[in-house]
Amino acid sequence: MIQTVTYDATFDGLLTVVFTVYELKLKDIVIQKQHQQQQVLFGEVLYVMSDKDKADRVWKKLKEKTKNKATYKLYAAFLSETQGVENIILQAVQYILASKENVGLDYGHPAVLKISKLAKSVGREKHRMEAFVRFKLTKDGVYFAVVSPDFDVLSLISNHFKNRYADQQWIIYDWKRNYGLFYDLHKVEVIHLEFNSNFDPTQTSDEIFAPIELEFQQLWKDYFKSTNIESRKNTKLHIQHVPKRYWKYLSEKQP
């Protein structure tokens, strides 16, 4: 019989599930996020509570068995939020832990290959966010950006922005997932913000943003226009690099 195991949707939670699978010698399970759990007709649902200590033990073991690159991929694949990714991660982990050799990058194994593909998509999204974040200067002197990434990548871009924009306060807010990162010149924190119902993240209202903000957006738009060489025009290639779903937050793409 297939058993359903649920967890709190965090990565530590999932690692705790892995720990539990070994501890209770579970077989044939389906892992689901607690809040997404579907009705089960037969059998019971086991809820595994996130346990930092157990999670760390699994993670440490994995790091011993394989390279950082492979463990990074497991984490990145998790951030893809793909339906069923938990089971694929479990399979890959079981394969890695069961093998004598380091097989974390053995793409001949279906789960490892799948993980690698998911991680690649997530990696691409990470790079896109590093590129497409557009800060706008608020009246309080904070550089504020809104994004809606395909995958949950904020944790992956945090260091990049912290290192780069060390001397300015900034916020990068994930509109889809309703949380953000706030850098206060010392450290980065996860924050949740309440927005007025009339707040439109694609606009630059003068209530919130500094007067010079629109000037620089205009200059940037002008600059973007100037870079174009009409006789080389290639819209297909352009859209391939900057897919339309990202345009709404890109200053240079505003009318």
Binding site: A131, Y223, F224, I229, R232, K233, N234, L237, H238, H241
Partner: peptide, 16 residues
């Protein structure tokens, strides 16, 4: 990092 791309698909990473 390419922050955006021109209409002809070239990388824009610097203020040139």
């Amino acid at each position: 990092i390419c922050h955006t791309y021109t209409q002809d698909g070239r990388c824009v990473s610097l203020l040139k």
